[in-house]
Design a binder for these strands. Structure first.
Lengths: 146, 146
DNA sequence: AATAATATATGCATCATGCAAATAGGAGCT
DNA sequence: AGCTCCTATTTGCATGATGCATATATTATT
């Protein structure tokens, strides 16, 4: 677990969460920022979010929640007495809130990067010329600007 | 729409490249779309790109190039006679061009996802009054229902 | 000769993920 | 009672990508 990243002057322990490019962990923290939930509910809720169309693997979700709890980003209590198996209800901590904000900052940065990539892509003229869609042999003379 | 995301109805051969959230492989293909280059040059060029501030690990770059060549996205020829060690000059193939376009589509989709996440984040009131955005002290009564 | 820069490649440990499967409580059905 | 399904969490295992160090070779510089 040796981290090679920044010297521990700030919460560099967060680097593990900030370097990721996916939105699973941010989505979990964001949902928990709205209201406490248990894992199964989080999985279902994530399926409805527009930024997470991939159906989440339960194992990944639960393991991430565990790790986040180990890192003090969330806390959990067992909720029994209800129908079905016991549920572990997670809620966000202040530290998790801080990380969520950093994730948002990170998301803005990645959005800029994607923007830069797309700009450069648009300005690059591909040798193929047009944009042949898959199995679309229809190929007329499109605008050839050069 | 909980559908399996598959922008490519093609075999999942490309899925390996499209699922990634990082911009290393797209960056490599984009650079090669502009002009043939060898690995070392690609590493240096990537360092100057605005969407890739992280300095690339040579091993990762070379291994990615190798894999891309195995998958027919790029091809390479040895270039000798120049000063220094021989260089393996890569150039994009038609297939690589197709994938690059799919990566761009993918990047647009991820941009939308980031946008959606950030929108939801902005609309979420954090308990801590963490003031994620400066000067937004507006705070209404937040009702918690049991 | 020693060193540094160029240029590519390999070995190894780590780490996160996907998939499968185990465990377990409760509800509904025959 | 048996059976199945949904809920809910957890663990095991293989895979695959990455970071880091290191090895190799060529050329220029000191």
């Amino acid at each position: 677990m040796p981290e090679k990243n920044s010297p521990d002057s700030e919460p560099s322990e967060y680097a593990v969460y900030l370097r990721g490019e996916q939105l699973l962990q941010p989505g979990l923290l964001l949902l928990l920022a709205r209201q406490p939930m248990h894992g199964y509910e989080l999985i279902q809720s994530l399926s409805g979010l527009s930024f997470n169309q991939e159906e989440c693997d339960p194992a990944t979700v639960y393991r991430n929640l565990r790790r986040m709890e180990d890192d003090g980003l969330v806390r959990s209590e067992w909720q029994t007495g209800l129908s079905g198996p016991a549920r572990r209800v997670y809620h966000l901590t202040t530290e998790g809130e801080r990380l969520l904000e950093m994730m948002a900052t990170n998301a803005r940065r990645r959005r800029e990067q994607l923007e830069a990539f797309l700009t450069m892509f648009t300005n690059t003229r591909l040798r193929g010329g047009g944009v042949p869609l898959k199995e679309l042999p229809l190929r007329e003379e499109e605008e050839e600007k050069t």
